[in-house]
Design a protein around this nucleic acid. Structure first.
Lengths: 194, 194
DNA sequence: GGAGATCGCCTAATGGGTATAGGCTGCGGA
DNA sequence: TCCGCAGCCTATACCCATTAGGCGATCTCC
């Protein structure tokens, strides 16, 4: 175990790798310290406590996710952009399950207010530009998109689809198609007043 | 602390109450034992280990949720049934946050194969009866419904909507409305072949 | 009605986790 | 050269899960 000099971001990077390899709940200070060839208390020079470590992983994950989304929707619009957006999420969850999980918990202020968080919202709205959803409905559409995509991935992760046919893959495509149809014909109340 | 005689279901009931009061992650054998006025190791006569305890809470929660849904959609169809279904989920998550959280993790076989689990699927399909979704599309629709509703509640719980207006309540209504519109005009591929 | 088996709780003890306090060391700057 | 300190270490306290084994009350069976 060669020991590169520790630093806050090295510790967080190790935690992120561990999360992907062994599950988010396996991210303990002890385990990260072992992985770094160091004693657990040594980490407290670099992260305030376990919460901060987990928030660090979440912040990093958010950045990576936003990059993936950005390249996935660049130069696309409408259905293509939606596909890219959804696929980016799904592949992120598949490739980096631990980092993805790190996003499924209440995060600290630093994470919420991060550039990455803002960036994702922007990208989300960019997808909507390809549809005719009225401006004042964008929040709702963003929330719906997030809820459905995240919810689907969460259900898939906990095995909610393991006990019925067909494969989650098929329903996933159907789900994205449904979201496309929905955005294409966004329902409007008579006398809507957001 | 008067001590009612312990039993497997008494232990699980205490765990469920604790989950609602202090959060699902606070459900530890020690805490449950304290709440029951008993030493922690005593619980091992009634639950195999912590996993089993958590699964027990999930099974119980699933039963309660299915009851709520059943009464919420009884005698209703179409949009009314969908509203009832969605609202039942949301009120369950509001009234029993810990129990609701217990359902957001991979559950043991006993839970997955329980009557309650089967019941919920049945109720889910009952909602679809009020719409013209083709039979072979029901799985997809059930999965989409589950993903969106659960996903919305999960995002709401972790505070995903806390940093933008308007209130989650408004988007929730909009979301249910969107689901209704979607089921009403379920998109079909040319040459679909599930 | 009594002897003993059994059931259900207890105490003791282990191992791993978070977190704090304080020691030692080697490197950089004056 | 020598001092300071940054960064890792050991020691320690406390919490939690889990196993082993003890002990008393109750239940059973004769």
């Amino acid at each position: 175990m060669e020991r590169a000099p520790l630093s806050s971001s090295a510790v967080i990077a190790a935690a992120a790798e561990l999360a992907d390899a062994a599950g988010f709940e396996a991210v303990t200070l002890s385990a990260v310290a072992r992985r770094l060839g160091v004693q657990a208390p040594s980490l407290y020079s670099h992260v305030r406590d376990r919460e901060a470590l987990l928030d660090g992983v979440a912040a990093r994950a958010l950045g990576e996710l936003s990059e993936r989304i950005a390249t996935a929707i660049a130069g696309r619009a409408g259905r293509d952009a939606l596909d890219g957006f959804a696929t980016a999420h799904r592949e992120f969850a598949r490739d980096s399950p631990g980092r993805w999980q790190s996003l499924q918990r209440r995060a600290g202020d630093a994470v919420v207010r991060s550039d990455a968080a803002r960036h994702i919202v922007t990208l989300n709205k960019a997808v909507l530009r390809g549809y005719d959803v009225p401006e004042d409905q964008h929040v709702h559409a963003v929330r719906l998109l997030g809820a459905t995509i995240n919810g689907y991935l969460a259900l898939e992760r906990i095995g909610g689809f393991d006990h019925s046919a067909p494969s989650p893959e098929v329903s996933w495509r159907k789900t994205v198609q449904a979201l496309d149809a929905l955005l294409r014909a966004w329902p409007t109340d008579p006398g809507e007043n957001p």
